[in-house]
Design a binder for these strands. Structure first.
Lengths: 201, 201
DNA sequence: CTGATATGTAAGCACTTACTTACATTAGCA
DNA sequence: TGCTAATGTAAGTAAGTGCTTACATATCAG
């Protein structure tokens, strides 16, 4: 009948959505098949077993950190603007990949190895990107002597939890306006603890 | 036979542990009964249905924020020490209630209303406590003009994610030494963005 | 001892789940 | 046209799942 690749994609997308809504155990193969507009048997012919489906979803929807591409465009901006741009982009990426993030949070307990792999390919790489940027700032004398791994991690973690709290726990849309105000407040607090000129003690 | 209250407690504790390990759907009433050293029937006699068990666990293990009791003892310390004490206490509380936190994270998607209730009785109240302390500092002229809701939220969220990342995602023990160094780094970055004397621009 | 209360054992019910088998259909390619 | 690959329908299996029923036992207060 149809294009086998297209069929496969529809199955994976249905799986992503349903697992993110109901968890791995709560998402049944019957319902996935129905939502994908496909026979349940097709799923088993293509993926063998349900667990494989799950792994394939994690592989497929691991979002490559587009933060890296952003850095060059930002490198010439004033620090505050640069960090705000990075922060907004990070929040937007999380929003776009909401289903994926939900799965990571839900299944982190029950399938830590599988989730950890997906995690290190996404958020951890974003941390490294931000850290690289901060290191260059520090080398240029713009930052005082703080541990930059920690600083980068703190910065992104605040945004991650902001997203998690609003969109997942409270199931409330994180509006662009709210994103901007959160990020600018964060950058404010973050920067004035990091800028060299303000150390003095 | 035994004390009915004691039996009830054993069931609730087994439920807490098993749901935190395997999720609500993954924890079967048979296994809970076995781990509690109790007949499966006893569970249904005491709680009626599985969902009720879940709700009762959330109610029972909601940890009352002992942060509040800490504030008076801390009010006379220098800000840095005070925040470090608060931070360490928060991390320790999370560690003690690890099972409960895991459940909150896992089931946040699938049972948001139930989890949200437990959440607001714990972490949100801690935020308010910390915010109260910061407001007093600000009134005393020790902090510059930053939004203190946001600041308090940021502070605790960083610690929450630190805990989550280490203990849940990486299933690694967060040692007292690591807790201390994380908290002191956090307070360093946090404070120098908040202290009035360093504003200047 | 009596009766109530808390628990246990055993069997099972109605239902769902992941997964399978057997057979039919459709589309495209040679 | 006929072959192959991708899918579908239908029926079913074995193993759970939450939850129930019927009946027995043990403890303890009166």
């Amino acid at each position: 009948m149809a294009d086998p690749l297209e069929t496969r994609d529809r199955i994976l997308e249905a799986t992503l959505e349903l697992i993110s809504e109901k968890g791995y155990l709560g998402a049944t193969t019957r319902e996935i098949a129905h939502q994908a507009g496909v026979s349940e048997l097709t799923i088993f012919r293509k993926f063998g077993k349900k667990e494989r489906l799950f792994e394939e979803v994690l592989k497929t929807y691991t979002f490559l950190p587009r933060l890296k591409d952003l850095i060059p465009a930002v490198e010439n901006l004033p620090v505050q603007e640069a960090l705000e741009t990075i922060g907004i982009r990070f929040l937007r990426t999380l929003k776009e990949r909401k289903c994926f993030v939900r799965i990571m949070l839900s299944e982190m307990n029950t399938y830590p190895e599988k989730v950890r792999k997906a995690y290190s390919q996404t958020i951890e790489e974003m941390v490294q990107t931000l850290r690289g940027y901060l290191i260059r700032l520090q080398a240029a004398g713009q930052l005082r002597d703080v541990p930059l791994d920690t600083a980068a991690v703190f910065f992104l973690r605040i945004l991650f939890t902001t997203f998690m709290n609003a969109e997942i726990l409270n199931q409330r849309d994180l509006s662009p306006a709210e994103m901007e105000s959160t990020v600018s407040q964060l950058v404010g607090i973050f920067l004035h603890g990091v800028l060299a000129e303000e150390t003095a003690g």
